[in-house]
Design a binder for these strands. Structure first.
Length: 473
DNA sequence: TTGAACAGAATTCAGGGTTC
DNA sequence: GAACCCTGAATTCTGTTCAA
């Protein structure tokens, strides 16, 4: 077996960094390791793994303490390999190569790399089992392999969302929150969306609580799956789907409004809370600008009750968004929604929400900086106190400033006067760089320090001051 | 078919607190 | 930074009923 020196940054490895394919002299892609030019060779065919999985193949999991299940982590690697079209023989060759850390798990579970606790046949059997499980899983939910497939998938979700029944009191906000997810997903062309509830509330222009409830409802209905995060200070990463069982409205009369336009309407500030409301948007988008519709037809198409439709039609009429033809049928008018938002005084609502969240984030960062400064001052003071005491040969301590002598100290007291305390020099640094991650990425923050609790009271007081003058925000 | 009024239920919001 | 939970006030929706 040739030695393999992975180049983590470039994602290339191979025999001394070169392709492992016979006779090839090119730089190698990851994993035993092909340059990518030998797609017909089962030993080298397939795309390179993501960097994360490259690291896990190289280093293995035996030394990792930050993962709950090593077997599931290994399985994720195998899933990735199959999604990258790796052949079974190539997977087996990589996973059982003792140069790769991950091989230790297949040869034995002892933590000794290549310890040889299993026979070749047994190790191969374990690899085969993981490949079989991965294939079954992939068959259940095929991976999206390209940006084009992602765009198509998002189009399907968007179209399904547009045809779905969003009746009920919370239907409008759920539809709006889903539109926000789709908007972010479309910007990144990914079906996975990493977004905190605060970011989501800004995107959908709804309150944080509303966003949270809507996410739960969308999860329960099958529109969203939480892929990671959502706990321990991590923002969640969601995957978007068309629900397996979808309730579709009886009639959908969306004319002249494309599906993306419907989503844009749902997110417009004219249809926010205290504006015309998300329900009004649902009513507006099902109207035709050519053919007049009865209120009953609008109610059926929007999934809203008749009184609700009537109420919102009145409001929409007031702002010049709908009109009635000679027969009394209701028509959608092409009006400037921005101007409507200005009239409703909701045109800055999203920015105001962002400002409030920004203030919260800023105050939080300042609170953490205060704690760090306080701790540093305490650490310096403790060190200065230690330095004042000089250990003498007879076991006593002399204060070099006052001349005081201390005697009869316990072993612990002596240790404290001689050595820095754990919580002074080894304490985890308080995180002050908590900038908000870009949309589309999971924002990973350090775990909250327990000592932060005392400062939270002060922080909460600062927040109260801000909200007392909230009207100006 | 449409408009209006009403009561009760449901939902949204901002704000606050706790925990990781 | 963020998730999660709670509260109280305000707002909206639903269902019913009646009238034009």
């Amino acid at each position: 077996m040739t030695s393999w020196t992975p180049n983590v940054q470039s994602g290339h490895g191979g025999r001394d960094g070169f392709c492992d394919h016979y006779g090839c002299t090119q730089r190698a892609c990851f994993g035993m390791l092909s340059c990518g030019d030998h797609a017909d060779d089962p030993m080298t065919a397939g795309a390179p793994l993501p960097a994360k999985y490259q690291d896990e193949v190289r280093d293995g999991f035996e030394h990792r303490t930050d993962i709950e299940s090593r077997s599931e982590a290994r399985f994720s690697v195998v899933m990735s390999m199959r999604n990258k079209s790796w052949s079974r023989v190539r997977i087996e060759r990589v996973l059982l190569d003792r140069n790769n850390g991950i091989s230790a798990a297949y040869w034995n579970e002892s933590g000794n790399r290549g310890g040889g606790g299993r026979t070749v046949r047994q190790a191969q059997s374990r690899v085969e089992r993981d490949i079989r499980r991965a294939d079954e899983k992939i068959a259940d939910s095929p991976a999206i392999r390209s940006r084009q497939e992602a765009v198509q998938h998002l189009g399907m979700v968007r179209a399904a969302a547009d045809a779905a029944d969003w009746s009920g009191r919370s239907g409008g906000s759920q539809r709006t929150v889903l539109a926000a997810f789709l908007a972010v997903a479309s910007r990144t062309n990914k079906v996975m969306v990493g977004m905190s509830l605060r970011q989501l509330s800004e995107e959908a222009n709804v309150g944080r609580g509303t966003a949270e409830r809507a996410v739960k409802a969308l999860q329960a209905a099958g529109w969203l799956t939480v892929m990671s995060g959502g706990e321990e200070g991590l923002s969640a990463v969601y995957s978007l789907h068309v629900p397996a069982t979808l309730t579709v409205r009886e009639t959908v009369e969306v004319e002249n409004l494309s599906v993306p336009e419907v989503s844009a309407v749902m997110l417009h500030e004219a249809f926010t809370w205290r504006g015309l409301s998300a329900t009004a948007a649902q009513v507006w988008v099902v109207l035709s600008d050519v053919e007049g519709q009865t209120q009953k037809a609008v109610a059926a198409a929007s999934g809203k009750s008749l009184p609700t439709v009537r109420k919102h039609l009145r409001a929409l009429k007031q702002y010049g968004l709908v009109a009635q033809n000679a027969e009394g049928g209701w028509l959608r008018l092409d009006a400037d929604l921005d101007a409507v938002a200005v009239n409703l005084d909701t045109h800055n609502s999203r920015q105001e929400r962002r400002n409030r969240n920004a203030i919260e984030r800023d105050l939080y960062v300042r609170a953490q900086a205060d704690i760090r400064a306080r701790r540093e001052a305490e650490r310096i003071a403790a060190k200065a106190e230690r330095d004042r005491w000089v250990p003498m040969e007879d076991g006593t301590f002399l204060n070099r400033e006052t001349g005081e002598v201390r005697d009869g100290l316990t072993a612990e007291q002596v240790k404290a006067m001689r050595e820095p305390q754990d919580d002074e020099d080894d304490a985890p640094a308080v995180v002050i760089d908590l900038t908000v991650a870009d949309l589309g990425t999971a924002d990973e923050a350090e775990p909250f320090d327990p000592e932060m609790a005392e400062c939270m009271t002060e922080w909460a007081a600062m927040m109260s001051d801000v909200y007392e003058f909230g009207g100006a925000l």
